[in-house]
Design a protein around this nucleic acid. Sequence first.
DNA 1: TATATATGTGAATACGTATTCATATATAGG
DNA 2: CCTATATATGAATACGTATTCACATATATA
Lengths: 118, 118
Amino acid sequence: MEDRVCLCKNIDPAEMLNTQKALPADDVINHMADFFKVFGDGTRLKILYFLMHHELCVADLSTLVNMQQSTVSHQLKLLRLNRLVKYRKEGITVYYSLDDSHVKSIFELALLHLKEQR
Amino acid sequence: MEDRVCLCKNIDPAEMLNTQKALPADDVINHMADFFKVFGDGTRLKILYFLMHHELCVADLSTLVNMQQSTVSHQLKLLRLNRLVKYRKEGITVYYSLDDSHVKSIFELALLHLKEQR
DNA sequence: TATATATGTGAATACGTATTCATATATAGG
DNA sequence: CCTATATATGAATACGTATTCACATATATA
């Protein structure tokens, strides 16, 4: 980039500085991006969708999403790391369930957006 | 996958079928995933954030996000295709603005989620 | 028409990531 | 202890994608 502070073609430099200062810090932005990335995959969306209705073990989940158990395990790990799901062990099987109250609202917003397009 | 309809380790086969039927169609799921993918990138998040506050031309946007104009143009195209931003041409310069009422709510939900983690 | 400026775009590149395979780990039962 | 079952995980692979570079396009102005 140039070594000027601001190119300011069309808005007031002072206002631009204020706008820039109001931007969330880079790590916040990155966390947000990571959060949305989790929702940016069909398999994970399906998993989350099913977990909105049931607590489910890995085997049943992999049947429902029609993917290999290994794939589902990998994705569940990602969902766990992002604290969207939690699990409970019962003997040999592991039951997963939602661990975030916002998942449903987020789904609904996305569907709203899609509906408003032709 | 196996040629059985359902492995049904732990939930009732009938209920599983119902759950499976209630899942949005694959193309809806894919559209949702694509929608979230758009938010899954820091540069685009910043662009959207700035457009929440101002209508802005490409040059000013690229200054604000501190990225090359070419990069910003590419990302704006993606945002346009997903109908998240609209533009207005004035002579030689192009002004972008938000084209979706849900962007703000979506940002807020993400921030809520992040706040609730340690 | 020639030039300058703002934006858009195709190709190349480097990096991320979803899936699969093979295998490891953990646990229950004999 | 041995076996079967459920889940987790590392390596490999194939594919997607964010960015940059170089250049094209469009528009205003001299």
